[in-house]
């Protein structure tokens, strides 16, 4: 059914909280996502011409790099982007076959590959570019929030988190229930002013971004300018005068 499940008060809304302040753009989440999802529930995620001049393939997580501000105020922001498992995702409602659906029990948006006809309309309807077409299988692929990991009771409890979250070396990625105001992720969003991507689209992403903390330019000490202002009779100034001869 591509109609969205009726919202239930207090329902579970699983999602990610991504800290743009601590992400260092290492792409570990990207590689880890590809490794986990190339097999199992989602796989395969094909690569085309992997050892040729123009390799490309299906990846469900991408890290963009942006430059924010000018000159001394400028800084680099790494921006990991994957499906936000929106509360009102048009990618689901446009699906003509019922292959795309949003789960009532936890809000995860999935594609049933056995029903997908590969019309690509869902990828047009997603403003974020979260869906990529698998040309080998003729079906659409997307982030499953590692649904075949987070509920797997054969895994140690600490490993029941999405592969991207497990891989992050700076703990910039957090996973949890954003429908529960008392959860760690909800508190993080409240504390840090977590925000939606493209709120104007009205898709209401479940996953949030934590903005970079104060964007304060780093002052670099310049030895030459220190030298010019050096004066007085201190020991360091004496050394400076001796060395400057």
């Amino acid at each position: 059914m591509t109609s969205l499940p009726a919202p239930q008060p207090g329902a579970k809304k699983l999602g990610l909280v991504i800290d743009l302040d601590t992400c260092v753009g290492c792409h570990a989440c990207v590689v880890s996502c590809k490794e986990w999802n190339a097999f199992g529930e989602t796989g395969p995620l094909p690569e085309f011409g992997p050892y040729q001049a123009e390799p490309w393939g299906v990846w469900l997580n991408r890290v963009h790099t942006f430059e924010v501000g000018d000159g001394e105020d400028g800084r680099t922001v790494y921006f990991p982007k994957n499906c936000y498992h929106c509360e009102e995702p048009d990618c689901v409602t446009v699906c003509p076959t019922g292959a795309s659906y949003k789960r009532a029990e936890d809000g995860i948006v999935l594609v049933d590959a056995a029903l997908c006809i590969g019309c690509k309309l869902c990828s047009w309807a997603c403003p974020y570019g979260a869906r990529e077409f698998d040309e080998d299988g003729g079906v659409m692929k997307k982030c499953t929030l590692c649904v075949d990991r987070i509920y797997d009771e054969n895994l140690p409890e600490g490993d029941r988190i999405p592969a991207c979250v497990a891989a992050c070396p700076t703990s910039a990625r957090h996973f949890g229930d954003l429908g529960d105001a008392s959860s760690a992720v909800s508190k993080l969003v409240a504390e840090r002013g977590g925000c939606d991507s493209m709120p104007e689209m009205g898709y209401r992403p479940v996953s949030k971004y934590l903005p970079p903390r104060s964007i304060r330019p780093t002052r670099v000490r310049d030895e030459r300018s220190e030298h010019k202002t050096a004066g007085g009779n201190g020991f360091l100034q004496w050394i400076d005068r001796v060395l400057s001869r």
Partner: peptide, 11 residues
Amino acid sequence: RAISQWRSSWL
């Protein structure tokens, strides 16, 4: 299969 989701999908 594309004729099944007329409740939500214009396609």
